[in-house]
Design a protein around this nucleic acid. Sequence first.
DNA 1: ACAAGTACTTACCTCAAAGTGTGTACAAAC
DNA 2: GTTTGTACACACTTTGAGGTAAGTACTTGT
Lengths: 129, 129
Amino acid sequence: MTAIKESSTQNMNKNIAEMHCPVTYVMNRIGGHWKPIILYQLINGPKRYSELKRAIPSVTEKMLIQHLKQLEADKLVIRKAEPVVPPFVTYTLSQSGEELTPVMTAMVAWAIRDSEVLAKKFEGMEEMN
Amino acid sequence: MTAIKESSTQNMNKNIAEMHCPVTYVMNRIGGHWKPIILYQLINGPKRYSELKRAIPSVTEKMLIQHLKQLEADKLVIRKAEPVVPPFVTYTLSQSGEELTPVMTAMVAWAIRDSEVLAKKFEGMEEMN
DNA sequence: ACAAGTACTTACCTCAAAGTGTGTACAAAC
DNA sequence: GTTTGTACACACTTTGAGGTAAGTACTTGT
């Protein structure tokens, strides 16, 4: 009996955490590496599945549909399939999804600024190496 | 020989992706479940390690320091340790880190809106049980 | 004398996330 | 008649994120 560690159940306080931490709420929705990237590609309007694939070359097909399905289940994107062959499927941001635009644009703004700062730093290091 | 799939190296085009997708850049910095949550806790000013622990009950100690170290390495937070015993360590947002505030606040705004919409929907379902 | 708090570190293990590689139904294009 | 493109689905394997548990060094409080 050397002092028991009572971290209790993990999932329980994860839900509690979501209750009082808005960022946790967001992370449980659009967390993960790919979801924000997919959503970002959709803010300029609907895209076909294959367009998304080409727009995000580093994603595998499996990851792409998997997250598209999840985003659809979470009511962030809307899937529309025309019953033609070859298939014609478009993905669009839902209302909720569109309201994420400020988050995305804030991210983009930060990325631009931050990568420029980094570039500046490298400028002064050209003699090195 | 049935059509070879040349997905080539994965990491290579991941870096390429970062070059032309700002959201990817952000995700490689503050992606993962915990980093945004930690950063969010720091926008109200410096916090001690133990304060962060208490503020985010659902995080394990391992995850907390692990991500704090990474955030420090990525120059998003600054660690300051007073050489006293018991240890007194504070974490502060760096310049870059502070510039993430708009991203966080946009997330919070969305979370509030979105959870309210959800709540509204549940209101009309009270009879359903 | 012993527990508790502080800020970690280390080792081990698990499970879910992600990658790899195939298959499919159908049509148009070459 | 073989290839190409579309929008996936499925099985298998691997990676790594994260959880669990314990220890450390030193001090203050009871």
